[in-house]
Nucleic acid binder design. Structure first.
Lengths: 218, 218
DNA sequence: GCGACTCTTGATCGAACGGTCAAGGGGCGC
DNA sequence: GCGCCCCTTGACCGTTCGATCAAGAGTCGC
């Protein structure tokens, strides 16, 4: 799950003891950095901009994170866990309609609650996943394999129609993440986004019904 | 459809007469710029990198496009047309299954043939659509309104189940664009992408069947 | 209240980058 | 083959940005 080799050389300031104020600053920096990186990408983000968003001076930020890249990796690492969490595999013992419905709801809630994390991940992948590629090929591929196996089992038991498991997974990811990654577009058309409970319910109901009807046996 | 006011001041070199070599250079620059911008975004892209990709010197590129922003706008403008084309409205007179199937196939083919255009557009929207926002609110919203009206008509005629037109549109966009925007992820899991005819057929069949089954009356 | 830290700051550096300038090729029409 | 104009180049400039440094302010334990 780690993106970087730890302790790559001289002790980073990140490793030293830290006061209460220090911990709060680190947290504020990570929050601000997530927003900025998720909007402008790595190269497009200015360290000073992140510092300002966190209420610190640029120099002060660099006291906590030695380089811009260190900060980016820290943000990405913290984000990936919360991002992968809703992707956890399906329970083969459950009824597919229930299990898939939960899965979709979880993923859509993640798009509502952590849109910046979704966008940061999307930016990474659009850029060819220069950093997270190893993680995709290992962790994510493993999660997909497991999930696909469960779906395949349901198909063989006749609980699902003849569906391609991996494409089904892509469909669910795509539709749910769309509301976070393309929020600006949805907002331009719709005038609202997932933070509106009514719209969230609509989206959840549509995605669930469409996909479930599409894969359940007729 | 225009993104910029034309002739914003002194005559740009873009307006002057142009030899055969010049036209070829402009085309090569625009192609290279699309790839680079689609990968690194506006701020993350280096003008020299684009020039190198086009086989020109930085100064030479700046002869054709006065500023980086001019070049970006030119790329975006040329891209948007090809991007919006497959979104053209559905024919209300047709059978919804046929019309929607065509729509999906067209959109998926666009993801295969112009993945960079799709990614560039995605980057723009993820960043909050700083430049294309007006276009989204006008042109795109109009296209959506028309398409949604057609779908609504099918619903009222009982040719479709009770589906939310706009969410259906989002689902189609999301699933088809996913194969272009998240190609790196799909490749990491799948080992191939839409350029593989077999995979394209799989994806097309899955999306079409899942979505159509999900919206056709039972 | 003293000492040892963690934290904060402003001045500053060097590289990278967008953009300019002046000068010189090179092709095309006449 | 001559001249005009498009094209190409390399040297250069000013700014921005990531990163360093030295010095001082807070703060916490004792």
């Amino acid at each position: 799950m780690d993106l970087v080799d730890d302790a790559p050389g001289p002790a980073a300031r990140q490793d030293t003891a830290r006061s209460r104020a220090g911990q709060e600053n680190v947290a504020r920096i990570l929050d601000a950095a997530l927003d900025v990186f998720a909007t402008f990408g790595f190269r497009g983000s200015r360290i000073e901009q992140i510092a300002a968003a966190a209420g610190l001076s640029k120099t002060n930020l660099l006291y906590y994170f030695r380089t811009k890249e260190d900060l980016y990796l820290a943000v990405l690492q913290r984000t990936l866990d919360m991002w992968l969490e809703p992707l956890r595999a399906l329970d083969p013992a459950r009824d597919p309609a229930d299990a898939l419905g939960d899965y979709i709801a979880r993923k859509l809630a993640a798009s509502r609650d952590e849109p910046a994390a979704s966008r940061l991940f999307a930016l990474e992948v659009i850029q060819g996943a220069p950093i997270v590629a190893p993680l995709l090929e290992k962790t994510l591929a493993a999660i997909v394999a497991e999930t696909a196996g469960t779906i395949e089992g349901w198909v063989e038991q006749g609980k699902l129609g003849p569906v391609s498991p991996r494409h089904l997974i892509y469909s669910i990811w795509a539709t749910t993440q769309h509301y976070a990654d393309f929020a600006a577009q949805v907002r331009a058309i719709e005038g609202r986004d997932l933070s509106d409970p009514a719209f969230f319910a609509e989206a959840c109901e549509h995605v669930t019904r469409t996909i479930l009807q599409g894969v359940l046996p007729r």
